[in-house]
Every structure is written in structure tokens, then in C-alpha cells.
């Protein structure tokens, strides 16, 4: 086992904002048509973490969402199911039960999601509870206040401890990039999360605007690429929030393809944190097949 040298997080890796945005704008010019479009639409569908994270969430809602997760469009059973459902810890057991017998994972947010404004112990308990309830994946938030204060060791330790609390569950670390503001902060938070043991890094809670953006995602993908080069460890990526349209999801996939390559183009390494995206993907898939533009009334909303 090779030892991994943890970099000095006080050293900032320079990132040129305009350069990142120009790169994204160029990638957005990829024209995805015909077979490549169909392939990507289905791929995107299979990468969705179907999400409901509201205070008013009910068991009924979660169960219905799980049905949608299994068979996104009843008339097309050939289409892939989504990768996971993402719920609050108290809904994990319900989701787990509803998804019995499938390969669909249950992801739970934790660590006092979305603000993360709670003592470490509370966050650990929150995580353990979700894992005990059967969560396959934990989506934690980092303490942005400590990060912005420059308390990088705090963030590192926090993630490492949560990782330990996860046991076998996969850990996704939410950076809440909308609150980090600069790409350099995004890069730094990504690095801290990966070196501290994250299996995935994730842009946003979806509760803060801006949520996922493509430039932020590109910066995170580049961080993943460098981490892979330096350690040999693959880390997954999950943009979340604000991705509602099929076209956007294809643009995100282009980012992945041309930054990290084919190995990451699977639900194991790439996810979309989204809900309404599912139906737009379905509408596009049916449109591609039938040649007719679709009406949302024909697609179930759960």
C-alpha cells in the first residue's frame, strides 16, 4: 500500500475564472444528436439520484418516488431505473423498504443538512442513524463557516470522522459551492474532501442559489482528475440542484467525457442530484423515438 501525501491546504491552487468559463462555453458547443443523444439521455436517466428533501416529506411521497425510481416511465419498462433515491435520514427506512429487491441505492443526507450548523457529535449521530436505517450512501455537508474562516483542518477532520461513521456506506461530500464563491475555494474544498476520504464530491444541497453550475462542476472534475493522477483513486462526482432540462444534463455529461473520460461515464462514478430532470429526460427519449414533441401531462410526477 502506497502512502498518500496530503497536500498543504493553505496553499491555494490558482484557477482562472474566465478560463474555466470559456472552457465550459466551448464544451457547451458540442452538438449531441441522433444515436449519441439517445445514448446520453438513457445514461443520464440511469445516473439520477431522485431526490426529495423537504420538511413536509411524507412516507407516501417517498414510496411513490421510489416507484418512479424503479420504473421511470411505465410504458417503457426497457428504460433504466435511476441510480438512487435521496432522502432525509428519517425517510431512509421507508425508501429502503420500497426499493427492496432492486439495485437502486438509498442515499441519505446527513450532518445537519443543509446548513451543517450543528456540533460534530450531532453530525456523527445523524450519520450513524441514517446508516443504521439502511442508507447505502451518505450525502454530508461541510461546515462552510469553518472553511471560509480558513480552518481547513477542521473540515478535513470532520469529513474523515463522518467517513468512519459511514462504515460501508458511500460518502458524498457536499461542498455547497454557492457559498464558497470562488473556484479556488471549490478546488480547495474538493481536495480536502477527497484526501479526507470522500467517495464522491457533490456541488450543492439544492437549498442555496446558485446550486450546481457547469464551471463549478468542471473545476471539481479537474480536481478529481488530479487526485486520480496523484493517488490512483477514483472519486465520483455529483452536481446537484438546478439541473432540470435534458439538454443541461447532456452538457454535464460532455464535461465528464472530455475531462475524465469514459471510465466516469457510469452511475458508479457520476450522478445527477435532481428530480424534475427525470421527466424531461423521458420526454426527450420518447420524442427521439416517436419524432413527436411531448406533453408533461403524459409523464408521472412523483
Amino acid at each position: 500500500m502506497n502512502t498518500i501525501t496530503i497536500p498543504d491546504f493553505n496553499q491555494t491552487i490558482p484557477i482562472d475564472k474566465i478560463g474555466v468559463e470559456e472552457r465550459v462555453s466551448r464544451l457547451n458547443k458540442r452538438s449531441i444528436k441522433k444515436e449519441s443523444k439517445m445514448q446520453a439521455l438513457k445514461l443520464a436517466l440511469s445516473m439520477i439520484d431522485l431526490t426529495t428533501l423537504e420538511g413536509k416529506d411524507s412516507e407516501g411521497k417517498v414510496i411513490q418516488m421510489c416507484r418512479k425510481a424503479r420504473v421511470p416511465h411505465a410504458s417503457r419498462p426497457d428504460l433504466p431505473s435511476v441510480a438512487a433515491v435521496c432522502v432525509y435520514p428519517t425517510m431512509v427506512a421507508t425508501a429502503k423498504k420500497a426499493l427492496e429487491g432492486t439495485n437502486i441505492n438509498v442515499a441519505s443526507v446527513s450532518t445537519a443538512f443543509p446548513s451543517g450548523m450543528a456540533p460534530r457529535q450531532v453530525k456523527l449521530d445523524d450519520t450513524r442513524f441514517a446508516v443504521d436505517q439502511g442508507a447505502d450512501e451518505i450525502d454530508m455537508v461541510i461546515s462552510r463557516g469553518e472553511f471560509l474562516k480558513g480552518n481547513y483542518n477542521y473540515i478535513f477532520d470532520e469529513i474523515a470522522e463522518i467517513k468512519e461513521a459511514c462504515g460501508d456506506a458511500h460518502l458524498k461530500v457536499i461542498l455547497e459551492t454557492g457559498e464558497l464563491e470562488t473556484y479556488e475555494n471549490v478546488r480547495k474544498a474538493s481536495d480536502i474532501a477527497m484526501y479526507a476520504g470522500a467517495d464522491f464530491i457533490k456541488t450543492s444541497t439544492g437549498k442555496i442559489s446558485p446550486a450546481a453550475t457547469q464551471p463549478v462542476t468542471l473545476v471539481m472534475l479537474e480536481a478529481i482528475r488530479d487526485f486520480y493522477r496523484d493517488t490512483g483513486i477514483m472519486v465520483g462526482m455529483k452536481p446537484a440542484g438546478g439541473i432540470r432540462k435534458a439538454k443541461q444534463s447532456l452538457q454535464y455529461l460532455v464535461l465528464v467525457k472530455e475531462t475524465l473520460g469514459a471510465a466516469w461515464l457510469t452511475p458508479e462514478w457520476y450522478r445527477f442530484g435532481a428530480s424534475s430532470l427525470t421527466n424531461d429526460l423521458l420526454m426527450q427519449i420518447i420524442k427521439q423515438d416517436t419524432g413527436v414533441y411531448q406533453n408533461p401531462d403524459y409523464f408521472s410526477e412523483d
Partner: peptide, 15 residues
Amino acid sequence: DQTQQNTAEIKDEPS
């Protein structure tokens, strides 16, 4: 194993 999807597109075991 758990994250393995039953999709038509992704036949190979993810790396």
C-alpha cells in the same frame, strides 16, 4: 455490486 445498474447501455461492469 449494489450500485450496478440494469441498464441497456452499460453492459460492462463499471471499472
